[in-house]
Design a binder for these strands. Structure first.
Length: 564
RNA sequence: UGCGGGGUCGUCUAAUGGUAGGACGCCUGACUCUGGAUCAGGUGAUCGGGGUUCGAGUCCCUGCCCCGCAGCCA
């Protein structure tokens, strides 16, 4: 495991307490966990919690964590997902080493065990249709009824099951069911289906099988085969635990794993549902599984979120059994924490406004020293060219500023970061009254950004030399949904935010920004964190906004708008 | 309605019968060549009702609310 080689915690969440107790009591001499994704979609931030938990626990206790694909339903599963899942886990910083498995690796063994169950009178082939089985299952308040085929001789079931396997029957005509208790208050124990017929090629086993085990018949046995000690899953499987245990007890499995359930991770302004995410992709609401607005690991990566921030978030929210919705701000806080420490600072102007320094010599270029990362001296400095004509941010000027606006305004002096103090002397407008240019003067005594007389402007602005600016596109991202609880009173699609992506062309960035490698996130000073997008190319730069900086001014504005 | 879970600041979480703590958010202030970062302070919670106990978020009884389960999905 590559992340955090640490010692077992004194006291952790309830799962780590169980593991600690099992080790102390001698029930287990080592820890084996597993992360068991179904390859029917991309991994999302919710999976990150399970991944960090399983790999984290194995790591802390000196055990191992298997990656096992739960590929028992070829109708929904694809190789593309097998590949993306592995890439995403690695990117998150975890490593399963040699322990890569597939539930389909165990199809032969599972089939043998099914035969054992039939011989022991604990399973039978049922000829009922899916509808009939549903009818016989009963309801929450009424017990189920036995299938007429429940008591057929084991030899007959054996024969039928073998013929199911050999492809003799069409899909849906027969199933193998466990014989447990049709009157059980736990519906999962009312003779659950163990095998179904599906004449579908499997991504790994091809045409070898036309019957496939259900989740319940595959999962626990796979755990047992691999020697998994603690099988950690989410709350909705709590009802399945009695069945999990029943199968372990009634089959000659080589070990006895224990299932432990925890509450999955959810966020405000977010939906983590594979089938919904699939629809977003298929219906073209987003740019793909890795759209920067998607809560998928691939999306967060493309958005510029560092893996470390995601791991930090998981540590922050903890592990429990109470359903919870974490405010997405906590994720953003974790990400900003990492980025603030690591991201290089750069200048970029998203909405340019021309600024001309009338008393600065034409044709002259000065090289200004700019700090790459004030949080990390080892990141060094760089030179940024300064000339008579500059671009500044439109938002940094107001002709008629309100009281709390500290930036540039007519007659006001501000600092151009790492350069000079400038004072606005004139506002140039076009025929429509639109501001097209600012005329300024500069104080040559303030070179580098400090005044010998101790003057302190209230604002410091970023800027780009017009002679050196490089054009770029910026894609500004915001929450995919316009409300914290999408779908709470209606269709999820109605809550999709029209402002989740804003594309800005005509942005101008400093020369060094032409060379940011894919996968690196930098800070555009005073604006936010940005990273080059997949679509970026030399001469056609595209940057994704990862997150804005915390913006006190925006808050002040919002407040005055509300009160005023 | 049967079964299985769960209810602690706005949100997430800790306290394992002994001062209800932390994180995020929010609000103040300090500092600042990013209205960033950082630092300091503040706001703010045990679902209700009974009981046991010197002492209850924790144990007991009772009520209420929330989530999951009736796929040949996982």
């Amino acid at each position: 495991m590559s992340v955090n080689d640490s010692t077992p915690p004194e006291r952790g969440d309830f799962i780590r307490e169980i593991v600690t107790a099992d080790l102390k009591s001698g029930k287990h001499s080592g820890v084996v966990t597993r992360f068991p994704p179904e390859p029917n979609g991309y991994l999302h931030i919710g999976h990150a919690k399970s991944i960090a938990l399983n790999f984290g626990i194995a790591n802390e206790f000196g055990g191992r964590c298997h990656l096992r694909f739960d590929d028992t339903n070829p109708i929904k599963e694809e190789q593309e997902y097998v590949d993306s899942i592995q890439a995403d886990i690695r990117w998150l910083g975890f490593d399963w080493g040699e322990y890569l498995y597939f539930a389909s690796d165990y199809f032969d063994q599972l089939y043998e065990w099914a035969l054992d169950l039939i011989r022991a009178g604990k399973a039978y082939v049922d000829d009922l249709s899916a509808d009939e089985i549903r009818e016989h299952r009963g309801t929450f308040t009424e017990p189920g009824r036995d299938s007429p085929w429940r008591d057929r001789p084991a030899e007959e079931s054996l024969d039928l099951f073998e013929r199911m396997r050999s492809g003799e029957f069409p899909d849906g005509t027969r199933v193998l069911r466990a014989r447990i208790d049709m009157a059980s208050p736990n519906i999962n124990l009312r003779d659950p289906v163990l095998y179904r017929i599906a004449h579908v090629a499997h991504p790994r086993t091809g045409d070898a099988w036309c019957i496939y085990p259900m989740y319940d018949f595959a999962h626990g046995q796979s755990d047992a085969i691999e020697g998994v000690t603690h099988s950690i899953c989410t709350l909705e499987f709590e009802d399945h635990r009695p069945l999990y245990d029943w199968l372990i007890e009634n089959l000659p499995v080589p070990s006895r794993p224990r299932q432990i359930e925890f509450a999955r991770l959810n966020f405000t302004y977010t939906v983590l549902s594979k089938r919904f995410l699939l629809r977003l992709v298929e219906e073209g609401h987003v740019r793909g599984w890795d759209d920067p607005r998607m809560p998928t690991i691939a999306g967060l990566r493309r958005r510029g979120f560092p893996a470390e921030g995601i791991r930090d978030l998981v540590d922050m929210v903890g592990v429990g059994k109470a359903n919870s919705v974490v405010e997405v701000e906590m994720l953003e806080h974790a990400v900003r924490g990492v980025l603030n420490r690591t991201a290089l600072r750069r200048f970029a102007v998203l909405r340019p406004l021309k600024l001309v320094i009338e008393n600065f010599p034409e044709g002259q270029t000065e090289e200004m020293d700019a700090v790459n990362n004030p949080e990390d001296a080892s990141a060094g400095t760089r030179k940024v060219p300064f000339t008579r004509e500059l671009w500044i941010e439109r938002d940094d000027f107001m002709e008629d500023p309100p009281k709390k606006f500290f930036r540039l305004a007519p007659g006001r002096e501000v600092r151009l970061r790492y350069a000079y103090f400038v004072t606005c002397t004139e506002v140039v407008k076009d025929a429509n009254g639109e501001i097209v240019e600012l005329r300024c003067t500069y104080d040559s005594a303030t070179r580098g950004g400090d005044s010998p007389d101790g003057r302190k402007p209230k604002a410091t602005l970023h800027w780009i030399s017009a002679d050196h600016a490089i054009p770029a596109e910026a894609r500004l991202y915001d929450h995919l949904f316009g409300r914290p609880d999408p779908g709470a009173d209606g269709d999820l699609f109605d809550d999709l935010s029209p402002d989740s992506e804003e594309v800005l062309s005509g942005c101008l960035v400093e020369p060094t920004l032409a060379e940011v490698p894919l996968g690196e996130t930098v800070q555009f000073e005073r604006l936010g964190y940005f990273c080059p997008d997949l679509d970026s190319a030399p001469g056609a730069l595209v940057f994704n906004r990862t997150l804005t900086l915390r913006d006190t001014w925006a808050r002040v504005q919002a407040q005055s708008q509300k009160s005023g």
